[in-house]
Design a protein around this nucleic acid. Structure first.
Lengths: 109, 109
DNA sequence: GACCCAATATACATTGTAGAAGAAATATAG
DNA sequence: CTATATTTCTTCTACAATGTATATTGGGTC
């Protein structure tokens, strides 16, 4: 069992995939990521991350059907594997452990 | 004003520095980091990160006095700059934004 | 074919990580 | 004393993994 440490973007992408549920394919992921992150991300950056996470078997994917809209090519949908879920949970817990006792910027919102 | 994105370890180190307050020098940072992270980190890894954050002016440091214990060489103490604080706050907020709405495995504290 | 949406390939910059080497202090042998 | 061993802390160096951008390809409507 390899110690799977996650980068910032990797974590972000995985969380966005969870948030999107079904419907988590490249472009949607990019958009939601940019939205939550308040920062533009290129498609290339996202797909690269998706590929690497898949290679590590933290994500799995399947092709959907083409949509009948102009240029509606088939989308590849992603979701977390069990291992991916575990790795993400671990990363998030670690982050909380690190935050513990600090008073950081107010969350408000 | 550069967009200062922080890596996982960079964030962790900065949070540990906050947690340690005065007394945040290399070895102590490494130890507290390993403790909170439940994972061993080498000193080399920590110092490299410290250097890079300093180069980006997210950290500042000053030398302390040698302690009278055997091998008690002078320590270099680190703390966040204003810019560093800002960058960390931003990173943490973004992380919260990403977590929003997800139910992740939250253990008790 | 022109045009659109989505995915893949490629290249380079930044971060993560480890190990070896160096610097500064105290202790201790002779 | 003073030479060197020993301890603590830091710096240097090298390479792996991740972050990021741009260009290219693949498959669909009009």
């Amino acid at each position: 069992m390899g110690r799977n440490t996650l980068g910032t973007l990797e974590q972000a992408v995985m969380m966005v995939i969870l948030a999107l549920g079904d419907g988590a394919y490249g472009v949607a992921i990019r958009d939601e990521l940019s939205r939550r992150t308040r920062r533009e991300h290129t498609l290339g950056a996202v797909y690269t991350t998706l590929d690497r996470l898949s290679a590590k078997e933290l994500l799995e994917s399947h092709l959907g059907e083409p949509t009948p809209t102009r240029g509606g090519r088939a989308k590849r949908y992603f979701k977390l594997t069990g291992e991916g879920r575990q790795a993400l949970d671990h990363a998030v817990n670690t982050h909380h452990e690190l935050e513990y006792g600090l008073d950081l910027a107010g969350k408000g919102a």
